[in-house]
């Protein structure tokens, strides 16, 4: 049965609920930053989280980067050779990876590999009362559990994106130069001539750093805010992946329009 009033009420409640959560998340972010002292002073805590979200994501990032590079090499060559400029393959592969694909795809992979794991870990600690127990032992769970995971993610993400781009360029080189036979020297020199350090590389690193902050924050918040049941944790994990993906793509649009404004 279709009831427009009920539908509107439903939509309104949904919007209010989301705005509310956004407010809670913002307050959580500030609290997290204020209580980050422990995570930085006792750096082995953060080191363990770099291992957890960075090292454990290495395989998926490296393999995906390689495959994306291989595909870029094939597609790029196919398109460029129509215009007789197959030497520009290096430029095309490098620019696509550094500006967009590196940060965005690495961010999406990071959200589904490390982000979901962080949410699961914190959510499970909450569901089994480990966080409450810690709080009762006069140890602040935000400082001891949440902040190191957040910073571990923030540090790992730009490194993973750089590794993704590097692997991708290697993949493009492998296809273009080794298999198809584009000139090796032209591949690299064209690339170097048109890729600018500050404009292309630093902007890409900046993007991945912003994505790292966003994904890590979403992951720790969803975990910390999850309902303390098995169902609640699994829903929180889903929300982490979905929200992170949306956040990455939306932020990517905003950042790109700021960074490369003069081109349009």
């Amino acid at each position: 049965m279709f009831n427009p009033v009920e539908l509107l009420r439903h939509l309104g409640a949904g919007v209010v609920e989301r705005v509310w959560r956004l407010g809670v998340a913002s307050r959580f972010f500030v609290a997290l930053l204020l209580r980050s002292g422990t995570a930085l002073r006792r750096y082995p805590l953060t080191l363990r989280e770099i291992w957890f979200s960075g090292v454990l994501s290495l395989i998926i990032i490296l393999v995906s980067g390689l495959f994306v590079g291989l595909v870029l090499g094939l597609q790029g060559y196919e398109i460029l050779q129509r215009y007789g400029s197959a030497e520009a393959l290096g430029t095309m592969v490098a620019l696509s990876l550094l500006r967009e694909l590196g940060p965005v795809v690495a961010g999406l992979l990071f959200a589904s590999r490390a982000g979901s794991a962080i949410t699961a870990e914190i959510g499970l600690m909450k569901a089994t009362e480990q966080l409450t127990a810690m709080d009762m032992m006069a140890v602040d769970p935000v400082a001891r559990v949440v902040a190191p995971r957040f910073w571990g993610g923030v540090i790992s993400m730009p490194l993973l994106a750089a590794l993704f781009s590097t692997m991708g360029i290697f993949g493009g080189w492998l296809i273009g130069v080794v298999f198809i036979g584009v000139d090796d020297g032209a591949f690299w020199s064209q690339m170097q001539a048109s890729v600018d350090f500050r404009y292309d590389i630093l902007n890409g690193v900046l993007k991945s750093a912003v994505f790292g902050v966003a994904v890590s924050l979403i992951a720790v918040f969803e975990g910390y805010d999850s309902a303390p049941t098995a169902e609640g944790v699994s829903r929180a994990i889903t929300r982490t992946v979905v929200t992170s993906a949306l956040a990455i793509l939306a932020l990517d649009f905003v950042l790109t329009s700021f960074m490369f404004r003069e081109l349009s």
Binding site: L124, M125, T128, E129, Q130, T132, A133, M136, M137, A138
Partner: peptide, 16 residues
Amino acid sequence: LRRRMGMLFQFGALFT
């Protein structure tokens, strides 16, 4: 105050 309190939780709540 909590440093002088101990609490045992329902299922132990050990850090896994």
